[in-house]
Design a protein around this nucleic acid. Structure first.
Length: 439
DNA sequence: TCTGGGGTCCTCAGACGA
DNA sequence: TCTGTCGTCTGAGGACCC
């Protein structure tokens, strides 16, 4: 490796090994060395993550849980604890920040790091990669793999090479850190399947295969215009550049969220608006609560339905002003739902809010504890007292919901919720986060 | 086997105003 | 006043990522 080349290799891709399963084993050491599967245990659940021992039996993420159980009957199946994974992820980012401030998270367990400003303190990129691995192990007790390259694509593929491998004979340790020099990029890239390119999924890979394009090298040899006709202009230009290792995307920290949503697959299909409406309210409440926690509001409500035949439709409605309450989100989502024929059966329902902006610039304000005390002592005209209309105004409703958020923070998500989503089988407990007619 | 949940981005079509 | 064009916005759907 020459000095000039190493100076360019400033992009690191850090990927935790079997993150969810590893966290479970960290908290319960009796799971160490066992096949562990994290995912939905219900009739329609899928595998979210699994240990290498489970992978050795052919289990992989996104596999239906029934199939996973069949392939690996000895597996320990765990529903998963996202809040716990979030905690560990935050600690992981603290470790990253010891090495560089330029961090682009991809998910809870993966991130790109730009270490161009870190060499004087921590050495070459390869030395930084090894140091990060050691530090993650020391602080979190977990393993990660590091890929290093000139671009994000190369770094990401390199980290995959660095990972352990699951085989029927057992788990084979990986190198942990893999660096791809600038001069070796095409040799590294071109023999790989096109699916390894960011943006090529099953559909695009199938389309390319029909034209004899199976490897990244095949794609690089393709006429760019022909590629654009095949996959569209934006994707064509992008993929052709990637195939020649041209990837100008910088490592970006502080990317903004574009939408916030919740969706849920039902254990059995629902054929009636009456059964779906409370679910819309519940999902809308959950979305509203998350928006308020994040200090965001939005202008567009999106409703998503997946039918029994797996076809999916979306319906959306935009407003002129910001959505200030969960009730408003639920009202619009319910109206969108009413216009859809659900007779064939709905298996998944989702509600999301997009066109986001900070609550402060949208005219909202953060409530203080004093405000909450005032509301408790003397309900405002719009917030549920006997006003002429009996319907609280949106800003007033937002204040009520802020108070509800405060109650939930203190007493738990089930402490208070809408009457429409009460779990009737268990008295007056709220089924989950909800909104609507506060009981 | 029967296909999650949280997102982003792109393309296309239709409406609408300049 | 009418018509055509263009840009922008919105909505819908699809593909993709982890």
């Amino acid at each position: 490796m020459t000095v000039d080349q190493s100076a360019l290799l400033d992009v690191l891709h850090v990927d935790m090994d079997c993150f969810f399963a590893a966290v479970e084993a960290l908290d319960d050491p009796t799971l160490l060395g066992k096949p562990v599967i994290v995912g939905g245990a219900g009739p329609r659940g899928v595998v979210a993550a699994c240990s290498y021992e489970a992978r050795a039996t052919g289990v992989h993420s996104a596999m239906p849980m029934g199939e996973a159980r069949r392939r690996c009957p000895a597996a320990v199946i765990i529903a998963g604890r996202h809040s716990r994974y979030g905690e560990v992820s935050a600690e992981l980012h603290d470790v990253f920040r010891e090495f560089t401030p330029v961090i682009e998270p991809i998910s809870l367990d993966e991130a790109f790091l730009d270490v161009s400003g870190s060499h004087r303190l921590f050495g070459t990129s390869e030395e930084i990669g090894h140091a990060i691995r050691s530090r993650v192990r020391e602080v979190l007790g977990l393993d990660c793999s590091v890929g290093i390259g000139r671009t994000k694509l190369i770094a990401k593929l390199a980290s995959r090479e660095a990972k352990p491998r699951a085989s029927k004979k057992g788990v084979l340790a990986g190198p942990g850190v893999v660096m791809v020099l600038a001069a070796e990029e095409l040799e590294f890239l071109h023999p790989r399947p096109v699916r390894d390119l960011w943006g090529v999924g099953p559909k695009t890979a199938e389309r390319l295969a029909r034209y004899g394009v199976n490897t990244i090298g095949d794609l690089a040899a393709l006429d760019p215009d022909a590629l654009e006709r095949l996959v569209g202009k934006a994707a064509g230009t992008h993929l052709h550049s990637l195939s020649w290792a041209r990837d100008e995307r910088p490592v970006e920290s502080g990317l903004e969220v574009k939408s916030v949503g919740h969706e849920e697959t039902f254990p059995t299909d629902r054929h009636d608006h009456k059964l779906l409406q409370p679910e819309v309210v519940r999902l809308a409440d959950s979305v509203g609560a998350r928006l308020r926690t994040a200090g965001l509001t939005g202008r567009t409500v999106n409703l998503k339905l997946r039918f029994a035949d797996f076809s999916t439709i979306t319906r959306a409605q935009s407003l002129n002003g910001p959505l200030l309450s969960s009730v408003e989100i639920a009202r619009i989502a319910t109206a969108l739902l009413e216009a859809v024929d659900v007779g064939t059966g709905v298996r998944l329902l989702g509600v999301s809010v997009s066109s986001l902006e900070p609550l402060a610039t949208a005219g909202g304000r953060q409530l203080s504890l004093m405000d909450l005390n005032d509301m408790a002592r003397e309900p405002r005209a719009g917030a549920g007292s006997s006003s002429a209309s009996k319907r609280p105004s949106e800003p007033a409703r937002a204040e009520v919901e802020a108070a509800i958020d405060a109650i939930r923070t203190r007493y738990g998500a089930r402490a208070v919720g809408p009457a429409t989503v009460l779990d009737r089988g268990s008295g007056l407990r709220v089924k989950e986060l909800g909104d609507g007619q506060w009981g």
